[in-house]
Design a binder for these strands. Sequence first.
RNA 1: UGCCCGAUAGCUCAAUUGGCAGAGCGCCUGACUCUGGAUCAGGAGGUUCCAGGUUCGAGCCCUGGUCGGGCAACCA
Length: 546
Amino acid sequence: MEEKSTNFIEDIVETDLKAGKHTIIATRFPPEPNGYLHIGHAKSICLNFGLALKYGGKTNLRFDDTNPVTEETEYVENIKNDVRWLGFEWAEELYASDYFSQLYEFAMKLINKGLAYVDDSTSEEMAAQKGTPTVPGTNNPYRSRSIEENRKLFIEMKEGKYPDGSKVLRAKIDMGHVNMLLRDPVIYRIKHAHHHRTGDTWCVYPMYDFAHGQSDSIEKITHSICTLEFVPHRELYDWFIEKLEIFPSKQYEFARLNMSYTLMSKRKLLQLVNEKYVSGWDDPRMPTLSGARRRGYTAKAFRDFCDKIGVAKRDNLIDLSLLEFCVREHLNKIAERRMVVFDPLKIVITNYPEGKTEMLPSENNTEAENAGVREVPFGCELFIERDDFMENPPKKYFRLSPGGMVRLKSAFIIKCEEAIKDANGNIVELRCTYIPESRSGHDTSGVHVKGVIHWVSAAHAVNIEVRQYERLFNTEDMNAIEDDFKNHLNPHSLAVLNNVYAEPALINAKFGEHFQFLRMGYFCLDPDSSDTKLIFNRTVTLRDSK
RNA sequence: UGCCCGAUAGCUCAAUUGGCAGAGCGCCUGACUCUGGAUCAGGAGGUUCCAGGUUCGAGCCCUGGUCGGGCAACCA
């Protein structure tokens, strides 16, 4: 293995370890269970779990479930499944909601220290009092309520005496602070809502800023790694830890992953699902891990990809082609080869005995040592790709043309004798002859051909469905658009082909297996398949230098 | 006219306490009697935004500019 240089977060960890600040490290992956994990999360997962693996330590899986309105148990289960699929195991499965009692006590502590107060203002009033980045905010009368009154009101908030939105608990910091987030941030709000884990126990819920850092601290997380948008929150994060006098977890920020032609917003992805632009969160076109898995992307490809893109603080827009490169690189090594004809053109080998079938061995994967061979049936009637024949070929065309010769992969060299057309002039069949001495592995014909094409025996071919995917969006930078993102959907993101014929070995395909259909790309079996109909998803095409 | 962050090959991104600047895509060349629009191997391509400074040595540190992005949800 080549030495991979460290990223800036690894530098921080190494420095901390060297300085004796910690002997082991603890990280956490903190998804909010309000959607499925996507490729951007994979970067965070690889970073957090990778750090603990590399330097010795643990990673907790902690669900950031402080907003009961948007969060569901279904998401929890799928997130766990996706993290495991990526190849990581967490030390503990935890929930911010596990800490609701403790968080409530933390809030009380701030009230008792005179560092929090109950505010009756409306959100509009609060926004107006907040000022702007260059104009300081103003104090309102509620800010000077007594500790006793604040304590009484907050208890009553918890007891459900006030309706949603009527009161909030705010940290009392500084309404003129240069950092807007420290202008008395809301830390608790009233929501009479059913929580996916705590049910109806609570009607006050902590805000992110009053839950995340405290949860980190309770779990003694040493390095709390999040994305750049939380940089301004770090000051608040530290303020609460200091005032609460709890374990000093530290927050570090990296640039989130953006990918070309891809959307990472869970809100928008949910919209695509709800409004049926896709078949579900696991639609193979979705950037979700479950979608990518269904499409045939491998966990290893994702880990390699995350390794390649690195971790830095610069805003980025990673080429989708880099991910595809990682997928091909892996699949090329593990996918067994099969022959499948997508747009069949019938050919008849006129000098091959009618009704005869012979089994020809074909290697499953020349890139893998022990992939072995399989037997492919050959007969006098075959299907080849319509594209592999040209009536009037250009100069450097190495495939079939009238009078031309081509090698049938793992079989014989054939020569096209005649193209038969229908009344409209469409080619419907090719009459060919084969060279018996040219059999693969036993070729004594002395004939050299440049082209090699795939084929299937018409008598043994299996009709399958193939789903070809293209990028979901046509716009490279989906973060830069101003209009409705749905205007940028690629109308050709899914193409279903039904007139597709596969060699019989494909009948035994299993879910989770990867195949390379020779010259066509990588494919895998889709769960929509039935006993009578096999459906394959195109994971990715072969590298195409057209 | 406040605070925070960034600027590296044509494009998109990496670069281990300061030590010969790397990858993918794109481009070019070569190999290959069995994927020839595939696969493999190699190549070209950089004043690391600008100007100063510290240092034996700076993409990394300091100062000042320029340009770009972010910062006011009872979301996370």
